[in-house]
């Protein structure tokens, strides 16, 4: 029974990892940008949620209503102010600039909030659970987060393939010059892509902060989980991030079930295994 429970919990955890991954996948798809500060932005969103819940005395889920638009605005400004200048043939500038950004966010958070672990409380929801036959219990909160993650990914999929914004994303991704001839301002479209990516990061950050304790140093670890989910699922495949996230979450929980010290290691090994046998991921869409 422990094993089945571990797998179920792993699947639910995978939803959170898919949220880490979706924003990363989106901006890579649109502008081939890999944001090294992605994990630190997730942590920033968690701290933002914490500040709002304590300042206004509201539930973290209500705080989302503020965190998501604020993160989106940060994304737009960041893209237009800094990151657009780094895009080009050379992969080094965006990589190094977002790496610098990661250092800045980590130490900025350290300065403001100190290194103490923090946590957000979702009240009674946290202990509520649904009993399943065979002594299995599913927490209401993890289940809710998983459902939200699936909904967010379905939403991103819809935006990307069925909205005018998504059409602009795909057009700019295909041929930047020609897209501009259609009257699309590349800088603005990239800004919107980053805004959308960080809106998802906002949800991911608040969920992270409800689920576990967090401190300013955990960003890079979240980046790596998100990255692994993207690669496992296959580059450019939005639904793939959900599958990648679930595989990662289940691997980690199975590893932890064998030996608590192996939790993270098992996730990384699952990733390296996929890389070895299917270098382009399970369901790739981009070359």
């Amino acid at each position: 029974m422990d094993w089945i429970n571990a797998i179920i919990q792993g699947i639910l955890l995978g939803g959170l990892y898919a949220l880490f991954a979706a924003g990363l996948s989106l901006i890579f798809g649109v502008m081939r940008l890999v944001n090294i500060a992605h994990g630190d932005l997730i942590v920033l969103a968690a701290f933002l949620g914490l500040t709002i819940t304590t300042a206004l005395g509201v539930s973290p889920l209500i705080a989302l209503l503020l965190v998501v638009p604020v993160m989106a605005a940060i994304g737009y400004v960041l893209q237009r102010g800094i990151l657009n200048q780094t895009l080009g043939e050379d992969i080094l500038p965006p990589l190094l600039v977002t790496f610098g950004l990661s250092v800045i966010i980590q130490n900025g958070l350290l300065e403001i909030y100190s290194a103490d672990p923090q946590k957000m409380s979702a009240g009674a929801l946290e202990t509520a659970s649904i009993a399943l036959p065979g002594d299995l219990n599913i927490g209401v909160l993890p289940l809710m987060m998983f459902v939200v993650a699936v909904a967010v990914i379905a939403g991103l999929q819809w935006i990307f393939y069925h909205s005018s914004l998504g059409r602009a994303f795909r057009a700019v991704s295909d041929k930047q010059d020609i897209a501009q001839l259609m009257g699309l301002n590349k800088a603005h479209v990239f800004g919107l892509a980053m805004a959308l990516s960080l809106a998802v990061v906002g949800i991911a950050g608040v969920f992270l902060g409800i689920r576990t304790s967090f401190d300013p140093s955990i960003g890079p670890g979240r980046l790596i989980f998100g990255f692994e989910a993207v690669i496992i699922g296959g580059l450019g495949n939005i639904w793939g991030t959900l599958i990648g996230g679930i595989i990662l979450g289940v691997s980690q929980n199975i590893g932890a079930q064998i030996n608590p010290g192996w939790q993270l290691l098992a996730g990384h090994i699952a990733f390296l295994f996929v890389l070895a046998v299917r270098p382009r991921g399970l369901f790739p869409r981009i070359d």
């Binding site: 940008l33 890999v34 090294i36 992969i91 990589l95 890079p220 980046l223 790596i224 990255f227 890389l275």
Partner: peptide, 10 residues
């Protein structure tokens, strides 16, 4: 490219 970078980190 950039994914190589994060791969080294893993």
């Amino acid at each position: 490219g950039a994914y190589f970078a994060i791969g080294t980190w893993v």
